[in-house]
Simulated assay, not measured.
Amino acid sequence: MIVIRGGVALVIAELTALLIYSVQNGSVNIRALLLHNLSDALASVAVVAGDALILIYD
């Protein structure tokens, strides 16, 4: 169940990062928002990987 939620969160974080990247015009605030979204995406990857390991090795 957590794998599904983490996957959905990963997709949403990637889509919002792509959206932010498309409107980035050199603003420092927009760049910080983009980096924040990318860190959220990496956290989602860690959640999915951790839960997958738990499911595999019980």
Results as ranks from 00 to 15, higher is better:
residue 5 R to L: 15
residue 55 L to F: 06
residue 22 S to F: 15
residue 29 N to R: 14
residue 23 V to M: 14
residue 42 L to A: 11
residue 4 I to A: 10
residue 7 G to A: 10
residue 55 L to S: 08
residue 6 G to M: 01
residue 2 I to N: 05
residue 11 V to F: 08
residue 40 D to A: 05
residue 43 A to N: 03
residue 46 A to W: 10
residue 9 A to V: 03
residue 31 R to V: 02
residue 5 R to P: 00
residue 1 M to N: 13
residue 17 A to M: 06
residue 42 L to F: 08
residue 29 N to S: 13
residue 50 G to N: 10
residue 12 I to W: 04
residue 29 N to H: 13
residue 30 I to P: 00
residue 17 A to L: 06
residue 45 V to K: 00
residue 58 D to F: 07
residue 25 N to R: 13
residue 3 V to E: 05
residue 7 G to H: 00
residue 18 L to K: 11
residue 39 S to G: 02
residue 3 V to D: 04
residue 52 A to L: 12
residue 54 I to T: 09
residue 57 Y to D: 04
residue 32 A to I: 13
residue 20 I to R: 02
residue 12 I to N: 02
residue 42 L to H: 07
residue 22 S to E: 11
residue 8 V to A: 15
residue 31 R to Q: 09
residue 47 V to C: 07
residue 56 I to H: 10
residue 15 L to E: 15
residue 38 L to A: 01
residue 53 L to P: 07
residue 36 H to W: 07
residue 13 A to C: 14
residue 58 D to Y: 05
residue 26 G to T: 13
residue 17 A to N: 01
residue 5 R to A: 14
residue 45 V to G: 03
residue 57 Y to M: 05
residue 34 L to V: 04
residue 47 V to H: 02
residue 45 V to A: 06
residue 40 D to N: 10
residue 11 V to I: 10
residue 19 L to P: 01
residue 29 N to C: 12
residue 14 E to M: 12
residue 3 V to T: 11
residue 40 D to M: 04
residue 30 I to E: 02
residue 37 N to S: 04
residue 23 V to P: 00
residue 20 I to G: 01
residue 34 L to Q: 03
residue 13 A to F: 02
residue 54 I to L: 11
residue 38 L to W: 01
residue 17 A to W: 04
residue 1 M to H: 14
residue 56 I to S: 08
residue 10 L to W: 08
residue 5 R to F: 11
residue 19 L to W: 10
residue 9 A to N: 06
residue 51 D to A: 11
residue 32 A to T: 12
residue 9 A to F: 00
residue 13 A to S: 14
residue 9 A to T: 04
residue 21 Y to N: 14
residue 20 I to M: 11
residue 14 E to A: 11
residue 28 V to R: 07
residue 16 T to K: 09
residue 29 N to T: 14
residue 25 N to G: 12
residue 52 A to H: 08
residue 6 G to C: 08
residue 54 I to V: 12
residue 38 L to N: 00
residue 40 D to L: 02
residue 19 L to H: 12
residue 5 R to W: 10
residue 15 L to R: 15
residue 22 S to T: 12
residue 19 L to N: 11
residue 18 L to A: 12
residue 39 S to A: 08
residue 11 V to E: 04
